[in-house]
C-alpha cells in the first residue's frame, strides 16, 4: 500500500546552541509523557520526532539549559 508524506509543523523546538544532548543529557526525552522527543545522534541535539504533543511543558521546565520551547500546536492556536 503506498503511503503519503504529509508535512506538519511541530510545537516543540530545541535551540541547538543551548542543547547539551552531546554531553549525555536526555532530560527532555526522559520526561515527555508521550515519548515524542528523541536525540538526533548525528547533530547531538534533541528534536521532536512525533507530532503527539500535550503541550504540558515538563520538557521545557526540566531542561537544564533552557534549550526547549513548547508552543501551542498550530491547530489549537
Amino acid at each position: 500500500m503506498p503511503y503519503a508524506l504529509n508535512r506538519v509543523t511541530v510545537p516543540v523546538t530545541v535551540d541547538a546552541d543551548k542543547c547539551i544532548a552531546d554531553k549525555g543529557c536526555t532530560v527532555c526525552v526522559d520526561v515527555c509523557p508521550l515519548d515524542v522527543l528523541a536525540i538526533d545522534l548525528t547533530k547531538g541535539t534533541a528534536y521532536m520526532k512525533f507530532d503527539e504533543c500535550w503541550y504540558c511543558m515538563p520538557c521545557e521546565k526540566d531542561c537544564p539549559t533552557g534549550a526547549v520551547n513548547v508552543d501551542i500546536p498550530y491547530l489549537l492556536r
Binding site: 509523557p33 508521550l34 503527539e52 504533543c53 500535550w54 503541550y55 504540558c56 500546536p73 491547530l75 489549537l76
Partner: peptide
C-alpha cells in the same frame, strides 16, 4: 473539537 488527537482534556497517555 480541534481535531488534534493529543489535545485532550486528560493527559493523552
Amino acid at each position: 473539537a480541534s481535531g488534534y488527537l493529543f489535545g485532550t482534556y486528560e493527559n493523552p497517555t
